[in-house]
Nucleic acid binder design. Structure first.
Length: 661
RNA sequence: GCCGACCUAGCUCAACGGUAGAGCACAGCUUUCGUAAAGCUGAGGUUCUGGGUUCGAAUCCCAGGGUCGGCUCCA
């Protein structure tokens, strides 16, 4: 006897046999046709799985369920593999093809080892074959086979990667059987569940091809990955594609060019951004604000050179471990070798070491906007977000072990202040721990345990959501990272707080304690922005180029209606500049509509239109970005209101009412 | 670094084996204008670089550089 309990509390009984599909049909024919899969006792299963005797909680999944979308995409990935197999023959090796749940652009992929290279041009052909498979409405059935039987099937099919996976499953996880899914002429090993037939797939698109190493290991063969997306309805697919198109308009590389913020060119070199006047304003505003916040928190500014002797980095441990990530050493004619600095810490450590420190002096907090250089792999570079020369809003805190947690907490507070002030609320917090199996970390295990404990204590106290990730630590210590997404959903580390017991050891740092003996300080490396370059890259996308008043390169565009009012416009501009506002007038021969359009496209927050009326009344006609025409306001009043908005750094806004004209 | 695509005027793009072109931007002139594009004229090119194939190459082939999407990496 099979008893099925439904989410609404009802239950149904079956004497002979029951599948979720049958249950759905018994409830209503509409549910039966909308059914995608089922959840039995909390686990997703196929619709046509036979329910064993006993009582079961059962929920029919329809296209409204989040899990159902994953199943749909997974099935679409199988259809992709089947299509590729049909088109490119038996020599095609299909490897893995998962659904993606939290990817911004893609919904699934499948990795192939193909007899001939393919590119995006081949995708329409593959899509057409997939549509054929959907049209055939092939039933999808699950079979459970022993390891030996499954292995035999895939050996017969010549699927070496599947055979390897089966052997690994048997060896590493001790499984005795695996589930296979069959749809017509295609067989795959898969946990499932899947849709009951290929005809259920209605709206999908292949998006791009890419290379991907087998099992993510660069020593392995590179496979061909095909990315795609699938939805239950064509409308959702169209909306998704439109959303991606819109998101790409925010791309900081495109906006950076349109708004004249920065350039990266081949003449200076890849990954070496140059800030144009307008971008420099944004950077200086951010840095100036941060300097003020550091002063409030007892930091001291220092300045250090961009290079240092190789031996400095031997002591720190950067060299030779990270030699591949450094620009090559520069030899001088005296036989000394220098490196462009990949980090500021060894220099700051020298400043700490230059003087003797009492426990009474600690914490010592040394800060510097220090530019560092790292030889990132060519394929990694990406606008301002991944570069070879970049600045860190760096500081190193030298403190006693007792002071450590309070200092970490203060760094967390500052980082959160930075993100909140800029409205960057869509970030996650990651605690990067060492990977116990890796050799790349320096220092004693006890120190690592201690540092990891300090970090956990602080995040628990602060009450942040966070995820621990082994293998994400710096080589000298564990860290708290604040991670944001770019316009196409890629994650990037911004602020970072790193606890380090190891470099003080390596550099033999000391302070004199109350007991009049030498003690070892602990170090914190921290950067609330991470790097102004990357941070501004993310900010450009966050604001879609429409910066808040305090950061906007041009805060007000003063637009004379015609040449006759150029003098008055110039007067307004100079009054604004006296008030410390960044104002520019447009004395071109264009009509007012064209001037407004130009200023609007540059995302200037405020436009002052001036003509005969304004000259006569000493006013400006205010137009606000995103709002439109506000109306005539006395010039001095307009400037005062703007100053208040600027000084509030986004907390307050001037001119919130649109004029009724 | 690896896989694939791409690289043409300052920018965005067209021409796809037969005289390199458009729009925007820029310069000059005309217009003096009221809330998202006035008109005319002009200037602007080593078609990424180097080799090759061809009567002829922006276009086809090879090598290098760069960019983009992934993968790997990211102190």
């Amino acid at each position: 006897m099979i008893v099925v309990k439904l989410p609404d509390g009802d239950s149904m009984q079956y004497d002979d046999s029951a599948t979720p599909a049958r249950v759905a049909g018994d409830i209503s024919s509409r549910l039966a046709s909308a059914a995608v899969a089922a959840e039995v006792n909390g686990a997703a299963v196929d619709l046509n799985v036979e329910l064993p005797d006993g009582e079961h909680d059962l929920r029919i999944l329809t296209n409204r369920d989040e899990q159902a979308l994953v199943i749909l995409r997974h099935t679409t990935a199988h259809i992709l593999a089947q299509a590729v197999r049909r088109l490119y023959g038996n020599a095609v090796q299909y490897t893995i093809g998962p659904a993606l749940t939290d990817d911004f652009q893609y919904g699934f992929y499948y990795d192939f080892d193909l007899p001939e290279p393919i590119s995006a041009e081949d995708l329409p052909k593959i899509e057409a074959e997939m549509k054929k498979i959907v049209g055939e409405n092939i039933p999808i059935s699950r079979v459970e086979l022993s390891i030996d039987q499954a292995r035999k099937r895939f050996v017969e099919l010549g699927q070496d990667y599947k055979v390897e996976m089966i052997e690994d499953l048997a060896r590493d996880e001790g499984v005795s059987s695996v589930s296979l899914y069959e749809q017509g002429d295609f067989l795959d090993m898969c946990r499932g569940p899947h849709l009951p037939a290929t005809g259920k797939v209605k709206a999908f698109k292949l998006i791009t091809t890419a290379g991907a190493y087998w099992r993510g290991d660069e020593n392995n063969k590179m496979l061909t990955r095909i990315y795609g997306i699938a939805f239950f309805e064509k409308k959702q697919l169209a909306a998704h594609l439109e959303r991606i198109k819109e998101a790409k308009k925010r791309d900081h590389r495109i906006l950076g060019k349109q708004l004249g913020l920065f350039i990266i060119n081949d003449t200076v070199g890849p990954g070496l951004p140059m800030w144009m006047p307008k971008g420099t304003i944004i950077r200086m505003e951010l840095e100036g604000w941060l300097r003020g916040e550091l002063l409030k928190r007892g930091y001291q500014a220092v300045i250090t050179p961009h290079i240092g002797k190789v031996d400095l980095y031997r002591t720190s441990g950067h060299y030779p471990y990270y030699e591949h990530g450094l620009f090559p050493a520069m030899e001088t004619d005296t036989g000394q070798a220098y490196l462009l600095k990949p980090m500021n810490c060894p220099h700051h450590i020298q400043i700490y070491k230059a003087e003797q420190h009492s426990y009474r002096d600690l914490p010592v907090r040394l800060s510097e906007f220090g530019t560092v250089y790292r030889m990132e792999q060519s394929g990694e570079l990406s606008g301002l977000i991944r570069v070879r020369g970049f600045t860190q809003d760096d500081a190193h805190i030298f403190c006693t072990p007792e002071q450590l947690e309070a200092e970490i907490e203060s760094c967390v507070e500052l980082t959160k202040l930075v993100l909140e002030t800029l409205g960057l609320n869509d970030y996650r917090v990651r605690i990067g721990l060492r990977d116990p199996d890796s050799e790349k970390y320096v220092g004693e295990s006890e120190n690592w345990d201690l540092a990891e404990e300090n970090i956990r204590n602080v995040v628990r106290k602060v009450g942040m959501d966070y995820a621990e990730e082994p293998g994400e630590a710096a080589f000298y210590g564990p860290k708290i990272d604040f991670i944001a997404r770019d316009c196409i959903g890629r994650e990037w580390q911004l602020g970072t707080i790193q606890v380090d017991y190891n470099l003080p050891e390596r550099f033999d740092l000391e302070y004199i304690g109350a007991d009049n003996t030498a003690h070892r300080p602990v170090m914190i490396h921290r950067a609330p922005l991470g790097s102004p370059e990357r941070f501004i890259g993310i900010l450009i996308e966050h604001f879609a180029g429409a910066f808040p008043l305090w950061l906007a390169p041009v805060q007000v565009a003063v637009l004379p209606v015609s040449d006759k009012f150029n003098d008055y416009a110039a007067k307004v501009v100079s009054a604004g500049r006296v008030a410390g506002l960044r104002m520019e007038s447009d004395a071109s021969a264009d009509k007012i509509g064209a001037k407004i359009r130009r200023a609007a496209m540059q995302k200037v927050p405020y436009i002052f239109v001036v003509g005969q009326r304004e000259v006569e009344t000493s006013t400006v006609s205010v137009r606000k970005r995103g709002l439109g025409e506000v109306g005539a306001v006395a010039m001095t009043e307009a400037l005062d209101k703007l100053k208040a908005e600027r000084d509030s750094r986004g907390a307050e806004e001037a001119f919130t009412e649109k004029s009724d004209q």
